[in-house]
């Protein structure tokens, strides 16, 4: 049996009488690319923040890399990478300085930081920009860099919250190549997206509607079940019933 790196059971997050996340249950296996879909306001980000140890669940249980989201958040944080919707590298630090800082606080040794960042700069073709402030880079590069930084310490799982929002199609394609590479090296990818072509790249996808998980399967099976040949249609059929909208 494959190793489960995320196990989620009846996970709920309640704000007053509003259920942002309503009893969701699912597993994610090691090395899997797990797509987390849903309309704006469906509760994706809230669920993801709980799994990353940024937010306490109201009820239910989940383990990430074997640690509980209820009381072992700090252990979870050592084993994951996280890239939020908002670009969150330091704009007034250079590419190398950002890598050094985030690598450092995740416990990568100074020697490894140097070696890995050299290789990273080479692979991304950023030799000329390495000492430039991150704020001056175009958005596409920023996003690729943020992803590279989030997996720099070789976490077990990386959480990506709409990583390709506002990015051009060519860069998006390159971005997904990077995701595949990371997945091939054994990192589990947990990704939210609004692009249905990206959903097709995932091994399995789940669709959240109004805080509940309405579907969970491979893209091919989902299309079969909803008797259509596009993910757009699948998403539309599921999300149409949503009462909540907006972020």
């Amino acid at each position: 049996m494959e190793e489960k790196v995320i196990v989620c059971k009846d996970l709920t997050k309640q704000f007053g009488d509003f259920y942002a996340v309503d009893k969701i249950s699912f597993d994610v296996s090691k090395g899997e690319i797990f797509g987390f879909l849903g309309a704006n306001g469906a509760g994706k980000t809230t669920a993801m923040r709980i799994l990353c140890g940024l937010s306490y669940p109201s009820s239910g249980e989940a383990t990430v890399a074997g640690f509980s989201v209820r009381n072992q958040q700090e252990s979870i944080k050592k084993n994951i990478g996280y890239m939020s919707q908002k670009f969150s590298l330091y704009e007034n630090l250079s590419i190398l300085e950002n890598i050094e800082f985030f690598g450092g606080v995740y416990g990568v040794s100074r020697k490894d930081i140097r070696e890995r960042s050299d290789k990273l700069i080479q692979d991304m073709g950023l030799q000329k920009e390495a000492k430039k402030m991150v704020g001056s880079l175009p958005l596409g590069w920023k996003q690729k860099l943020a992803f590279s930084v989030s997996i720099f310490h070789r976490p077990k799982i990386v959480f990506l919250d709409e990583p390709t929002g506002g990015v051009d199609p060519v860069t998006r394609r390159q971005f997904w190549d990077m995701i595949y590479d990371a997945s091939a090296s054994g990192i589990t990818i947990f990704v939210t997206t609004h692009y249905m072509d990206e959903a097709e790249y995932c091994n399995r996808i789940s669709v959240m509607v109004d805080g509940k998980m309405e579907a969970l399967d491979s893209p091919a099976n989902l299309k079969k079940r909803y008797a259509t040949d596009s993910m757009d249609e699948v998403f539309y059929k599921l999300a149409r019933g949503a009462r909540r909208s907006g972020d």
Partner: peptide
């Protein structure tokens, strides 16, 4: 405001 604190909060920094 910039959102970097969330990136800090998700690291093992105490």
């Amino acid at each position: 405001e910039v959102g970097t604190i969330e990136q800090i909060n998700v690291t093992p920094i105490k």
